[in-house]
Design a binder for these strands. Structure first.
Lengths: 264, 264
DNA sequence: CAGGCTATAATGTATAGTCATATACTCGAC
DNA sequence: GTCGAGTATATGACTATACATTATAGCCTG
């Protein structure tokens, strides 16, 4: 009921803003899953009663931002997020290990359902307590522990996680399939390994570790919080910054060859 | 004379690609300094022999990417970089300390001119040795050492640095004034403090530290390499990711220096 | 000279088309 | 059934134009 609201933070004034907000919202909220085809320009023209240029410019912008992929004749599709977040490259741990040419394995150390505590409520931004799944996983590179993962999953946002054992797929990858587009916030710091973490990682207590905490949320609420603890010299985070990719738009268009899910 | 060249990595095929590449190149290379006014749409139309829509779309895209700021009637201007790199927010250390409400001071511990060694040549991507300025600085928050900065400046790229004492302005800030737009690559890791670093920072050796290494380059060559060593729990890096800013384009246009709400 | 008004110059939004290009799909030849 | 040619379709590039918005610069008045 937003009738005659004060003029602060007024809604979209222009057609293109409305289209952008609508589409971005649908993608970020997960209503349009990754790979899903989005309406063609003609349909959007009709829907928003505007010209083709207008919708096209919005779609082009979304494509540049990496949210969608456009293919001639086929249409426009919701992009796959991991190809996007290259600004701060925190890939799948499995991929990281593979890049080191070491066999990857992983195991769940601890799995526990409970309600969110008060401090966690801060993270998940809800007033009431939320059902959570608490997971501790250990990722191995060969015989050596590579990363300790301490994760909380908001079961209200992802109820299916409650019955998932994560025996096959690590929770990170598992979640990425379900909640494809998301807003992420990282906090990165160095810390000495706590005794328990050190034991799990088979390193001496007080060894310097790189600690990455990431809160992942969709538009509505936080979905998962994860703390990744990497033994000091094993891991390095790389982030590079280039304002606009030097690749041609043509290169940008058709990445991710095979994947073509079709959902409504 | 590009007659029938093989189609690999051919130059810009389209007008808009050429315009984009040209303008981005001029900004990134520093030929157009921050704040500098860029040609108005009419001039670009004439220069590239195309319609206004075409140049406008390019400029709009550059504006969305944060490289330029557009103001009605006034024209388009090269943006100020620090307002941009919000993806991985590594601000001026002075600003960091100010945010903690502590008095900031800093001093140069070591200043030394020399030629680049072989491993550094790797960083700076030149074949021959390059004249370099080596600097060690200590940044203080109140009475406490806050960050140790170990920096190399490519004197071939920034000759003025040779005669600069950096007594007033820290090298990071000093460089930012000179080389406004740049490509940056960060490597972030946790490491135990080396004895010398520990002594400078007045912490126990082997204390976990957050080490940030950043190579900054313009299109031609690396300009500076810096290693920032933060005592473990003193510092946290925050990076948040949002595909397209939720703000309206209007908000985006006139960003004032006092903006940038912290995220979380 | 302060304060306000206006003309103007720049961007901002949007329309309505044309032609180009890539490609999913169909359909026919084999 | 498979391969290949042709066709339909959706995006891509671009033009030409119109009107809106807004900040600057200069003018005009008191």
């Amino acid at each position: 009921m937003r009738t005659s609201r004060p003029r602060t933070k007024q809604g979209p004034r222009f057609i293109h803003e409305r289209i952008l907000a609508d589409i971005q919202g649908k993608i970020l909220s997960g209503r349009w899953a990754a790979g899903c085809r989005i309406p063609i320009e003609q349909e959007l023209m009709k829907q928003y009663q505007c010209s083709r240029m207008t919708v096209s410019k919005v779609l082009t912008r979304l494509a540049h931002a990496g949210l969608i992929v456009r293919r001639r004749k086929a249409g426009s599709f919701v992009g796959h997020p991991h190809s996007q977040s290259a600004v701060l490259d925190i890939p799948d741990i499995k991929v990281e290990v593979a890049a080191l040419d070491l066999p990857y394995s992983y195991g769940v150390l601890h799995r526990h359902k409970r309600r969110s505590s008060r401090e966690e409520r801060e993270i998940f931004g809800k007033d009431g307590a939320v059902p959570m799944l608490e997971l501790d996983c250990l990722h191995m590179a060969g015989e050596q522990p590579f990363c300790l993962e301490q994760r909380l999953i908001n079961l209200q946002a992802v109820p299916e996680a409650a019955s998932e054992t994560f025996a096959e797929l690590a929770p990170g990858a598992w979640l990425r399939r379900r909640v494809p587009w998301m807003l992420a916030e990282h906090r990165i710091r160095a810390a000495a390994a706590e005794p328990e973490a050190a034991a799990a990682l088979k390193i001496k207590p007080r060894t310097p570790c790189l600690v990455i905490e990431r809160t992942t949320r969709d538009v509505a609420s936080a979905i998962t919080f994860v703390r990744l603890i990497y033994p000091g010299n094993l891991h390095e985070l790389v982030a590079s910054f280039m304002p606009i990719a030097a690749v041609s738009d043509a290169d940008l268009r058709d990445r991710s060859p095979a994947s073509r899910a079709r959902s409504g």
